[in-house]
């Protein structure tokens, strides 16, 4: 009996000793963040001890704080995995700045914004559709789609209202596809530019490649005219300039057309329907008349040329637009030049 009590006493004593060795008492409770294994001890220093033996004092203070953290860690529920004892750490409380800002949500494209505004929802397309002509499933896009298209469109019907039946429809189709792809790419890049806030010129001319269309030239003139400090208010007119009523300035708001009457609207819509329904070749009376007049004129010109060398000074028949002031003995007449008529 004595032995047992002896052993118990010894155990109790050792327990008390180890308890003492583990416990740490502080006036102010240190702030401990177990998530980051962090301890902020804002207790005052014992100045006397610090002055006399700094290193030993610092080590002692640090040890006490580490002991506190260890005590807290061992209180957490212990888990066992592959023979290793571990604890789950709580979420870190101490806030540290991030390295990079939070990722922004993916920016919507122009179309997506528009679709949301209008409430347009995407209708899911089937991945492949049955083709009755080929007797095959044809994928909507991707692998084997192009091959199927080639099989299907080995011949193309010339539409009835075609202006020129001799146009290569295959080439036209290819070109149209190319254009669509280019447009899509352009829009994709524009969307990227919008999200990255890169400035893209909206006003101006397309890059100078080859000759410009007359419409493009008109646009260029219009843009140039208003590109002054006064927005073109004091811009003088050229001598022979025809002021276009319709200004082809990209980005400028178009004026709203006045509302049509019921009758007018009806006729215009009927015309549209007519043009769609009527697959027969269009007969443009005006164009035909113009053609006939042109042919007549050409014939007359030839006749005149053949027998016209005798006649001179027939300036009356000239139209007013092509009137040329006579040059009074200023130089030689060059006559017909080599490279054909000078085109203006």
């Amino acid at each position: 009996m004595e032995d047992i009590s002896d052993v118990l006493n010894k155990k109790e004593a050792s327990d008390r000793a180890s308890q003492l060795s583990v416990t740490v008492s502080k006036i102010l409770e240190p702030e401990i963040d177990l998530g980051t294994l962090l301890c902020f001890d804002s207790n005052d220093f014992d100045t006397k001890q610090l002055r006399s033996d700094q290193e030993a004092y610092l080590t002692d203070e640090t040890r006490n704080n580490v002991q506190l953290i260890i005590n807290q860690l061992f209180e957490l529920p212990m888990k066992n995995e592959d023979g290793y004892m571990y604890v789950d750490l709580p979420e870190p409380r101490y806030n540290l700045p991030r390295e990079k800002p939070l990722p922004a949500p993916k920016a919507l494209t122009k179309w997506q914004k528009f679709a949301i505004e209008k409430g347009i929802k995407k209708t899911p397309k089937p991945k492949s559709t049955w083709d009755d002509i080929l007797q095959k499933w044809i994928p909507t896009y991707g692998y084997k789609k192009a091959a199927a298209e080639k099989d299907k469109d080995w011949i193309l019907e010339v539409p009835g209202n075609a202006a020129d039946p001799n146009v290569d429809l295959f080439a036209q189709k290819r070109e149209a596809k190319k254009e669509r792809v280019a447009k899509n790419e352009y829009q994709r890049l524009r969307n990227i530019a919008a999200t990255r806030k890169i400035k893209v010129p909206s006003v101006g001319l397309p890059p100078l490649e080859g000759t410009l269309h007359s419409n493009q030239l008109k646009t260029a003139v219009d843009v140039a005219k208003i590109s002054t400090a006064s927005v073109g208010k004091f811009q003088p007119k050229l001598s022979k300039e025809v002021v276009s009523v319709k200004k082809n300035i990209p980005g400028l708001k178009k004026e709203k057309l006045p509302a049509k009457s019921m009758k007018e609207e009806k006729t215009t819509s009927l015309q549209i329907i007519d043009s769609i329904n009527n697959k027969k070749p269009k007969f443009n009376l005006e164009k035909a008349a113009n053609k006939a007049i042109h042919a007549e004129e050409v014939q007359r010109f030839r006749e005149k040329k053949e027998g016209g060398d005798k006649k001179k000074g027939g300036g009356r028949s000239r139209s007013k637009g092509s009137f040329k002031r006579p040059t009074a003995n200023t130089g030689k007449r060059l006559g017909k030049q080599k490279g054909g008529r000078k085109r203006r």
Partner: peptide
């Protein structure tokens, strides 16, 4: 991972 101790008020 080290334990970080900050001493001093």
């Amino acid at each position: 991972k080290p334990v970080l101790i900050f001493l001093g008020e």
